[in-house]
Design a protein around this nucleic acid. Structure first.
Length: 204
DNA sequence: CCATAGATCGGCT
DNA sequence: GCCGATCTATGGC
């Protein structure tokens, strides 16, 4: 059984956490519902400390992004384009603004429910984008601020050695493109937008 | 496969 | 008012 990741795992430099998160297991165990499990294959780091104009929180704390400034290991969920939901996990100690966007994953458990949540789609279309991932796992704005240590959403360490991790620029930004802060499994077909990696990290 | 338009609305200027 | 950390359908090559 995989060990669960606690707040201490996220209380470290965001880029380190992001690259170690590739290959980890994301679980959603709603009370009375089917248990969802996926293996993360694509994430992006956001750091609102002034160096990253692409980050929510870059311009200071607001009602929407306040959890990004709070303690690590909590969920930052936001609505995108008025209709989609995206899931982040907060990193670094309270007072710093940083989080990791979970962009794509490989389904492991709860496939039937995911398929139903995604209008009958199958394969990579199930979970190969941040909005699709939340829809498949039934993650909503109600999960805003919840702790990964108390659930219902939690993270588990992936098997070692980890995958080869590709690094590229982030997706969909009009600002902050200068930072190569997207990390993905270089060999996984479940990655949303394949991109030639700027470089590949070998992990143990 | 690639490019583009439209949906839809909260947060921010 | 403007504009997204997006997704889907559609049309072209």
């Amino acid at each position: 059984m995989a060990r669960s990741l606690g707040h201490d795992f996220f209380d470290r430099p965001t880029l380190t956490v992001a690259r170690e998160l590739v290959g980890a297991i994301l679980e959603h165990a709603p009370p009375g519902g089917p248990r969802y499990r996926v293996r993360l294959v694509e994430v992006e780091a956001y750091v609102g400390d002034g160096s990253d104009p692409g980050a929510h929180g870059h311009g200071g704390m607001t009602a929407r992004n306040r959890v990004m400034f709070g303690p690590p290991g909590h969920l930052y969920v936001y609505r995108s384009y008025g209709m989609h939901t995206c899931l982040n996990v907060v990193t670094e100690r309270a007072g710093r603004c940083a989080a990791i966007l979970l962009r794509a994953a490989e389904p492991l458990e709860g496939l039937e429910a995911m398929r139903a949540n995604r209008g009958g789609r199958q394969g990579p279309e199930l979970t190969n984008g941040p909005g699709k991932l939340c829809a498949a796992l039934a993650i909503t704005l109600d999960h805003y601020g919840s702790s990964i240590e108390t659930g219902p959403v939690s993270l588990l360490a992936g098997p070692r050695p980890g995958p080869r991790v590709g690094v590229s620029r982030r997706i969909g930004l009009s600002k902050g493109q200068e930072h190569p802060w997207r990390f993905f499994d270089a060999d996984s077909p479940w990655v949303g937008r394949p991109r030639t990696p700027l470089r590949v990290l070998r992990r143990r």
